[in-house]
Design a binder for these strands. Structure first.
Lengths: 225, 225
DNA sequence: TGACAAATATAACAGTGTTATGCTTAACTA
DNA sequence: TAGTTAAGCATAACACTGTTATATTTGTCA
């Protein structure tokens, strides 16, 4: 009874979009995609609070157990979103630096980061701790974050003399990252009620510009073109 | 049946520590103190994950409903800890500035902040979002945070010329706060696995020194003595 | 003493993440 | 082609969360 038996009608209705094709895993892959899509949508709308296993399962049209078959439960869902977030950071930092001064490169990175953080606030909050305290990034997720940080380093080390030691390059990137991230985080929490300014992004750029200029002055032998 | 009836034995055992005394509210005040103390201890040990209403009630020797009588449920507990955290920031910034240069004042504030964040990591994480996403600071808590920020402003504005406009003073303090907080937050989350350095506090001070020096250079007419 | 308000205890409710139990379905093998 | 086998699914349950309704005890005041 392989192909001789006709499939039940409800399945034909369910899986019209693409023919069942040869491999059965395709349906599973579809379920996996649907789950991740549903999770992303719920996440974008209501943040992490809207992300319950049951709500994701309902929105994706699967049973709750499906979240555990295709992902590693809620941990797996959050991990996927965590990686998605750092992937976007990584992609945002993939811009051409030709015909740009060191100052322009760094400011471009800073602006891209700030815009991203503003646009994907949910991902940002997830990455930086607001994960309900029952989620630890997996090794894969950590690797993605490390990859993104390396790209930050590779951009910011243009301000240093060539052949600078790696720890110094890391340190420069860490300084800049801390400054930018600190602004985003303060915006998300403490200062949102204290500072009346709406153009906080320009405030951040302005503050970080001071630091960048100080770095340029401190390392006059940099590769600035 | 007021005083004529002898109290149950289990209650006498419960309240031996101090005699029931004249006013009945005394016991309540004691219960409130016990609850807050138990919550603080659990919080210090296991962070916010260890703070369940039932565990607090058990540790304090009261019923779960006591958390709702004396506090406003979990929201009230977290609010108290939130205020406690900002109170410590406020107190840490209460140091004498006599015989100190502007640079020394700012660095002293930065070091105090970093030490505090290191020592009371639980409070810090609570203040900056890791609250399980079901807690919003009350008006009283926000007021405490605003009070602490004002003290940050009052210290950092020494780097500005006298009679600088208030928004500029805020901006300078915000820059410094963002930088310092960014370091703490990165330490708590992303970079803990990337950066091998253990002396991150000195790294932070070093990075922020660059910014402070840039500010001093930018505002030569400051009140530096 | 009796009435009233506050604090407490028990239990339940609705929600969470997770998992054990069956059952269906698909795929591979002889 | 027939049969074994593994994977996916659904139902229900478990242990836990914050919160609350009900009922009982407690203490204060008139």
């Amino acid at each position: 009874m392989r192909q001789t038996k006709i499939k039940g009608p409800e399945q034909l209705i369910e899986k019209v979009s693409k023919q069942p094709s040869k491999i059965g895993k395709v349906n599973s892959a579809h379920a996996k995609k649907r789950i991740l899509l549903a999770a992303s949508e719920l996440f974008a709308l209501g943040g992490i609070s809207a992300l319950s296993v049951r709500s994701i399962a309902d929105a994706a049209g699967v049973s709750t157990i499906g979240i555990y078959s295709h992902f590693n439960g809620k941990q797996g869902i959050l991990d996927a979103l965590f990686i998605e977030g750092y992937q976007m950071v990584h992609d945002t930092m993939a811009f051409s630096t030709v015909d740009l001064s060191a100052r322009q490169i760094l400011l471009k990175g800073v602006r891209g980061y700030l815009t991203l953080a503003n646009q994907y606030e949910g991902h940002y909050r997830l990455i930086f701790g607001e994960n309900g305290n029952q989620y630890e990034p997996s090794d894969e997720a950590r690797e993605m974050s490390s990859k993104a940080f390396k790209r930050l380093v590779s951009h910011s080390c243009i301000i240093l003399p060539p052949n600078s030691p790696w720890p110094l390059k890391q340190k420069i990137a860490l300084d800049l990252w801390a400054f930018v991230h600190g602004y985003v985080s303060l915006k998300h929490h403490a200062t949102s009620a204290m500072i009346s300014e709406q153009h906080w992004q320009e405030m951040a750029v302005e503050g970080i510009s001071i630091h960048i200029d100080a770095l340029i002055a401190k390392y006059p032998t940099s590769q600035t073109k």
